[in-house]
């Protein structure tokens, strides 16, 4: 019964081998979906290419629904999986800064690694930026240490906070995603008529 490594079914010594293998599949899917190009990624913000929205939201709803089925069938103990902790205001601020970085830089961290792999200089420079950014964050840490640790709600899920069952959230996200896929395909058709074809 999963999760396999925390439950000792796969010995912890295999951790890094599994990390590389899962990473390879992750990188392959990002690149094969077109995420190695900043032009494709930025398209989601300007309406000429919604590939990010399609891949990302499909992945979220498939994973949400799948994990619920794994739980229902008794294949995984959801109580044993890692739940990202919630630090309310720092995460909102962090997300806003990341969104700004996404629009300006045209990548996010995982996608920039695949960009470097196929020879994108802008991806390499973006990754150097990540390194500098995290270093600067560390240097200035005493200035915002209190803010960084503020709003700690613990490792809570949507269900913990609202009392609404997880399956309702999965259903709601699925409906929103399907509506977004349909709506954005109409926007994309309109915008693509007005935009110059983009080159590599």
């Amino acid at each position: 019964m999963g999760p396999l490594i925390p439950n000792g079914i796969i010995p912890a010594g295999w951790d890094f081998v599994i990390a590389i293998l899962l990473g390879i599949v992750f990188g392959f899917l990002l690149e094969a979906s077109g995420f190695s190009s900043s032009r494709n990624l930025a398209g989601v913000f300007y309406g000429y290419n919604f590939v990010v929205l399609r891949v990302f939201f499909t992945a979220v709803i498939v994973a949400m629904t799948g994990l619920l089925y794994f739980d229902y069938l008794g294949w995984i103990e959801l109580s044993k999986i890692f739940i990202l902790p919630t630090y309310l205001s720092p995460m909102i601020v962090g997300g806003i800064i990341m969104g700004l970085g996404f629009v300006i830089g045209g990548f996010c961290p995982g996608t920039s690694f695949t960009g470097i792999a196929i020879g994108k200089t802008d991806a390499l420079v973006f990754t150097i930026g990540l390194y500098i950014g995290i270093y600067l964050f560390s240097l200035g840490f005493p200035l915002y240490e209190d803010f960084y640790s503020s709003g700690n709600m613990g490792n809570v899920t949507l269900t913990d906070v609202t009392g609404i069952p997880a399956s309702w959230f999965a259903a709601a996200f699925t409906i929103i995603a399907l509506a977004a896929f349909w709506g954005t395909s109409l926007i994309e058709k309109k915008v693509q008529k007005t935009i110059k074809e983009y080159k590599f």
């Binding site: 990302f56 720092p90 830089g105 996010c108 920039s112 991806a123 973006f126 930026g129 390194y131």
Partner: peptide
């Protein structure tokens, strides 16, 4: 390239406040 660098710096800073980036936190 200048904007790619600035974007990377911002994303790096934001991901620390956010406890992860698009893969770890959002996805």
């Amino acid at each position: 390239l200048i904007f790619a660098l600035i974007g990377g710096i911002l994303f790096g800073i934001g991901s620390q406040f956010g406890r992860g980036c698009t893969s770890g936190a959002a996805l």
